[in-house]
Design a protein around this nucleic acid. Structure first.
Lengths: 219, 219
DNA sequence: ACCTGAACACCGTTCAAGT
DNA sequence: ACCTGAACACCGTTCAAGT
């Protein structure tokens, strides 16, 4: 059935890798699965790709690049939110990307995310001497929060009942020792009802409020 | 030489796992390496531990728990900084922990970090209805930023010349296309001189400023 | 230049057998 | 109850050989 029509290429290999990762997660990317799907031997793949690490990096880039390509318009704050949400949604659709982004250094891919975020930081009136720090903090929050959200989504699973699992977790929190975990118990109900995307945006808003407070725009 | 004196136990296995991970990173934890060091067979280890995933989780917990055990005194902001720094330093000393924390959901271990952070959020005067959101955002930043920092540290490596590698990366940024990467180029010098720990703290301060701005404490 | 496929070293895990 | 160690299925990677 999987008869080869086009000749092999790095692009076809990377596309197949993304499909395997989407279908079965990190563990789904295997040279055997890849050779099956592409109807070749492992040597053919190694001709186009140095090793599995490079293939994973290329697959990550194939998902992240389009998400960062769009350059939204609007006020700096809104553009920052749009960039962040684009990455959030890309990771949500391809949860395996999270581990790559979070545990490879974000400089690895290339500095596109830093550039996008940084341009908004500049537009927000942050003083020049603080550009790198503020932009880095925002990038780290965006990548880190999106990654941890993907991890939660993986627990629920593709066909899982989100409400049921949140409820189960909330019940676990409510059963904790009241002396050791008063806050967690008090907050279990809010966690049951929370929305991942909204909370991610709340984090961006919190950071933006911090930027405005520390660096009030002179008007 | 590695003669067994004590009998095997889950604790001894977890300790050995932490040592292997510290010595050689994620790839260093192997059942063969473990059996060598403990002078047993794999079956003995499986008697005490369900599988490799559980062992990794237990090793992570063994590192994270002590870091969260100390309950620092002081003003809410200072206590929050202390909790965050304790986790940062633990991850810095055991970089493999980062991948575990960032890509396993933080609820997995248990809600100790949320509890610590949350108690400070409450003390800061955040209104009750926003407790979960604000505390979650802070936890996600702390874990995410610490994890990405560990990834950077892994690039430098244990004996690596940090200044040299930062300089190399900065030079790469300075060579980027001026039209596509104006911000990144402008910021290369700041990145060359930056301090990971300081920048992490700057992120906490930014978040705290955001909390204060969105939820001004009534005095 | 590009591909084939057998082979290698290594991995997590199982399990009948011992004590 | 706790441990042994051979065995199994699977993995990433290599490489002589083909076209």
């Amino acid at each position: 059935m999987p008869r080869r029509t086009e000749s092999l290429s790095r692009e076809r290999i990377v596309d197949a890798a993304v499909e395997l990762l989407d279908a079965a997660g990190e563990g789904g990317l295997t040279f055997r699965a890849l050779t099956d799907r592409l109807a070749t031997g492992p040597g053919a793949i190694y001709w186009h790709v140095a090793n599995k690490g490079e293939l994973l990096a290329a697959a990550t880039d194939a998902v992240v690049s389009p998400a960062l390509a769009a350059d939204p318009a609007g006020a700096p704050g809104d553009r920052l939110r749009a960039v962040a949400l684009a990455l959030f949604d890309a990771i949500d659709a391809h949860p395996w990307v999270a581990a790559q982004l979070a545990s490879g250094p974000w400089q690895t891919t290339d500095p596109r995310l830093l550039e996008s975020v940084g341009q908004q930081v500049r537009a927000l009136g942050v003083p020049r001497g603080r550009w790198f720090t503020v932009a880095s903090v925002l990038v780290q929050y965006i990548v880190g929060a999106a990654a941890q959200n993907a991890a939660n989504a993986r627990v629920v699973g593709p066909g899982g009942d989100r409400a049921a699992i949140l409820g189960e977790m909330a019940r676990g929190w409510e059963d904790l020792d009241p002396d050791a975990y008063p806050f967690t118990r008090a907050v279990a109900g809010q966690m049951r009802a929370h929305d991942d995307r909204e909370q991610f945006l709340a984090g961006i808003d919190l950071a933006l409020a911090g930027v405005a407070a520390l660096h009030p725009p002179r008007s």
